[in-house]
Write a protein that binds this DNA or RNA. Structure first.
Lengths: 243, 243
DNA sequence: AATTTGTCAAGTGTTCAACAATGTAGACGT
DNA sequence: ACGTCTACATTGTTGAACACTTGACAAATT
C-alpha cells in the first residue's frame, strides 16, 4: 500500500477529466455543441454533475458557454493563437532567464522529453511529437518554480493543443522544429541563458507563423464550406459568449 | 432604450459575483467555512446554484474546497504571497517593457488612477488606497494587450487583495508607496522603459517585504491564538485541498 | 414573393426533495 | 486521559420537475 494520497476525488472532477481528454485528443471537434442530457447518460452521471463538469471546462477555456444556447467546444481564432503565443513568449523567456543554476533533475527531464520528441518524429508519429514538443516547453516553465504560473501556462497550452489536433498534419512538418529544441537544450546546459532566450524567441515566432499559416488555410476552407447554404450548422460562429 | 447589452447573466454567475465581492471586501474572513444551505437560503437561491457559484470561486482560487469537508475562504500563506509577487514581477515588468509607444488613453487612465490613489491616501482611506494602488498596476498590464494575461493577472491580484484586507492597516503605511507610483508614471511618459522596469522591480520587492512582515506578525499571533486549547476552530489550517 | 406573426419542440437554467457517503462531536466505557 | 461507538450535520449525487429562451417552421399579412 503505497498511495501517498488516497484516490478521493469528486465525480464531477472525474467527468471533467474525461471530457478534457476527449477535447484535447480531438475526439470532440472544435465547434461541436455538447448537450448535457445525452452526455450525462453516456457517462452514467446525473445532469447536475455533468453541468458542474462543463462549468469547470468552460472556466478553463476549453468549452464556451452561450447562455440558454448551450455549450460548445471552443474554437481558436487566429487572434487566439497569436495571444497564446504571446503568453508563451512572456513566460518561457522569463523562465529561461531564471535558469541561472538549473536543478540537474529538471535538466535530465528536459533531455528525456527531447529524446522522446525525436523518437516520435523518427517514427513519424505526429500526435506524439506535438505532445512531447509541448512537454519540453512545459518543463522550461518549471525554472520559475511557481505553481500559479505553471498552472496558467498549462491551461493556455491546453487551448493551443486543442487547436493543433485539428490541423491536418500533412500540411505541417514538425520535424523541422527538432534542431531548434536541441539547440535550446544545449545552450541551457551551457548556461548561455541570454542566447538561449533569443533562440527560443525565434523558435516561438517560427512555430506561431507555421501554425497560423496552416490554420488560415483551414479557416478559409471552413468559411467557404459554410457559404454553402444547405449545410445546417449546429453552432453559430458569432454567438454572444460568457465565462 | 440605451442598453447595449441586456442584463442577461445566469443566477449562478450573479451569486458568484456577490460572493466574490464579499470575500474581496473582507466580509468573509479567510479561513471561515461557507456552508451551502445557509448561504443559499440567505440569497434566495437553490443549493445547486450556490454550489455552482462556489465552484466558480474555488477555481478562481478565492475559495478552497476540501472534499466532503466543505468550502472555506482561502488563506494566504507567506509562500503564496511570495509566489503572487513573483507573478506580478514577471507580468508587470514585461508589460512595462512592452510600452514602447503607449496608447494615450491608457496613459490618461493611469494618471487618473494615480490621482485617485493620492486622494485616498490624503483622506487616510486605506481600503480605497489599496484598491487604487492595485488598479494602477492592473492598468500597466494593459500594455501587453493580452486578454488571457490580463484575466490571469486579475485573478492573481484578487487573491492578494483578499490577503490584504485582513491585515490591520495600522501596521502598515500605504502613503510611503505613493512616490514610487509617481516616479513610475513619470518614467513611463518619458519613454524610459528600462529605468521604469528597474524602479518597478524595486517597488514590488519593497511592497512584498512590507506585506510579508505584517503578515508574519499576524501569522504568529494567529498561531499563538490557536495554541489556546479552548478556541473551537471551524476549519483546520492543514486540510487536504483540491481545485 | 417577402415579411411578419404565431406556434411548438428542444434545450438550458433553476429549483426541489431525497438518499448515500463522509466527517464531527459528544457520550460512553475502559 | 484515551480510544470506541453512536448520532448528527454537511457535503456529494441523483432524479424529476417547471419556467424561459431559442430556433425552426407554418400561418397570416402586406
Amino acid at each position: 500500500m503505497e498511495r501517498s494520497q488516497i484516490h478521493r476525488v469528486s465525480v464531477a472532477d472525474q467527468v471533467a477529466g474525461i471530457l478534457r481528454q476527449k477535447v484535447l485528443r480531438g475526439e470532440f471537434r472544435p465547434g461541436t455543441s455538447l448537450q448535457e442530457i445525452p452526455l450525462a447518460e453516456e457517462l452514467g452521471v446525473s445532469r447536475n454533475t455533468m453541468r458542474e463538469a462543463m462549468r469547470i471546462l468552460s472556466l478553463e477555456g476549453l468549452l464556451k458557454r452561450s447562455i440558454n444556447r448551450g455549450i460548445a467546444v471552443a474554437q481558436l481564432s487566429l487572434k487566439d493563437v497569436h495571444e497564446i503565443y504571446h503568453v508563451r513568449r512572456v513566460l518561457e523567456i522569463s523562465a529561461v532567464h531564471a535558469a541561472k543554476k538549473p536543478a540537474p533533475d529538471l535538466l535530465r527531464e528536459i533531455r528525456a522529453a527531447l529524446e522522446e520528441y525525436e523518437d516520435a518524429v523518427r517514427a513519424s508519429d505526429w500526435v506524439s511529437a506535438v505532445s512531447h514538443d509541448l512537454h519540453f516547453h512545459s518543463l522550461l516553465i518549471r525554472f520559475l518554480g511557481n505553481r500559479r504560473i505553471e498552472s496558467f501556462y498549462q491551461k493556455t497550452i491546453g487551448e493551443l493543443r486543442m487547436g493543433m489536433v485539428l490541423v491536418d498534419r500533412r500540411h505541417d512538418r514538425p520535424d523541422i522544429l527538432v534542431p531548434a529544441h536541441r539547440k535550446l537544450y544545449q545552450l541551457l546546459t551551457a548556461g548561455k541563458r541570454k542566447e538561449c532566450a533569443a533562440v527560443l524567441a525565434r523558435h516561438l515566432d517560427d512555430s506561431e507563423s507555421r501554425l497560423s499559416r496552416v490554420m488560415d488555410s483551414h479557416e478559409s476552407a471552413r468559411v467557404a464550406d459554410a457559404a454553402v447554404p444547405k449545410s445546417k450548422r449546429s453552432v453559430r460562429p458569432t454567438a454572444r459568449v460568457h465565462d
